[in-house]
Computed example of a mutant assay.
Amino acid sequence: MKEVIIHSDTGITLVGGGEIGPGDMSLALRLAPMLVAVDGGAGAALAGGHGVHAVIGDFDSLTPRDRARIPADRLHLIAEQDSTDFEKALRSVSAPVILAVGFLGGRLDHQLAAFNGLTRFPDMRCILIGATEIVFHLPPSLSLGLAAGDVVSLFPMAPVAGRSQGLKWPIDGLALEPAGRIGTSNRALGEVRLETDGPGLLAILPRAAIESVITPLARSRCHAPAGQPDAPRPARA
């Protein structure tokens, strides 16, 4: 069940408890200024001198010291153990775009769980920021002003098909699936347009492309969870 706790008309930065590079927080907050900590990610936010609008999670990695520094009305405990803290946060926030730091790098199982979270919530326009790459779930259609030669990797988390313009190796007519054909290490020829027939396809792009991605993604129509109509473009982005 989705219950919105925090809403922003601009953008939300989620900070997790994984590896955070020296420029990750400043990049994310410049583009998405409302900061929401995911459980133990509150420690990283406080250590960097940042105030948090909310902390969301089961609090199993939020230290008593950090918890005591955050006003009680900003602490949102979700105790169930059927979802990750990242998923708890995704279903509890609303914004045209969400930037997430502290979810790539570090433990591989945590990274895979984050990819699973993007796939389970295809209606959320969320970009994971890593040291050299960004990862996000592709909407039904998206046009990106990429540089010629940029690596464009497409990884299916479910069976999915689509079409492309501006890729060195087009994906038209291909059946992509996790245990079959994947679309990694493609290259942009310049501007790229991608269309997908359903949810489940993740895009992995160079980190430097984030500002080329954030506006078109925020304005896109997103795939909705199974059994629901696709999510419309937000009124404000």
Results as ranks from 00 to 15, higher is better:
231 A>Q: 13
44 A>V: 12
24 D>H: 14
225 P>S: 07
204 I>G: 00
194 L>Q: 01
236 R>I: 14
120 R>S: 08
53 H>G: 15
220 S>L: 07
190 G>H: 08
105 G>S: 00
188 A>F: 07
229 P>Q: 11
45 A>G: 04
2 K>L: 10
40 G>A: 11
204 I>Y: 03
94 S>P: 02
122 P>S: 02
49 G>R: 11
195 E>D: 14
2 K>I: 14
157 M>L: 15
198 G>Q: 06
81 Q>D: 08
66 D>T: 10
237 A>R: 10
14 L>P: 01
51 G>I: 10
14 L>A: 06
10 T>Q: 15
113 A>C: 08
66 D>Q: 05
213 V>L: 03
22 P>V: 13
223 H>I: 04
186 N>D: 04
128 L>V: 01
89 A>S: 01
52 V>E: 03
119 T>I: 11
32 A>F: 13
96 P>M: 15
25 M>R: 14
196 T>Q: 01
83 S>K: 14
68 A>E: 06
207 R>Y: 06
187 R>C: 01
93 V>I: 15
158 A>E: 15
231 A>M: 14
200 G>E: 04
223 H>R: 05
222 C>M: 15
21 G>L: 09
215 T>W: 09
33 P>W: 11
16 G>N: 07
129 I>V: 08
10 T>V: 15
26 S>Q: 14
184 T>I: 09
59 F>Q: 05
164 S>D: 07
117 G>W: 08
148 A>G: 13
157 M>W: 07
185 S>K: 07
39 D>A: 08
200 G>L: 05
114 A>Q: 01
105 G>L: 01
7 H>C: 14
5 I>H: 05
62 L>G: 02
107 R>C: 01
30 R>D: 15
164 S>Q: 09
11 G>C: 15
40 G>P: 03
39 D>V: 11
11 G>F: 14
92 S>M: 05
210 I>N: 00
134 I>F: 04
73 D>S: 12
167 L>F: 09
217 L>H: 03
204 I>A: 00
80 E>Q: 13
56 I>V: 08
63 T>W: 06
67 R>E: 08
98 I>M: 00
22 P>H: 11
174 L>F: 11
6 I>S: 05
202 L>S: 02
24 D>F: 10
75 L>R: 11
132 T>Y: 03
107 R>M: 00
235 A>L: 12
145 G>V: 03
24 D>N: 12
83 S>D: 13
182 I>K: 08
209 A>E: 02
6 I>N: 04
153 S>D: 02
87 E>M: 10
90 L>H: 03
176 L>V: 12
33 P>T: 12
68 A>R: 09
224 A>I: 07
213 V>S: 02
37 A>P: 02
110 H>T: 01
22 P>M: 13
187 R>E: 06
172 D>V: 10
54 A>F: 08
117 G>D: 00
10 T>F: 11
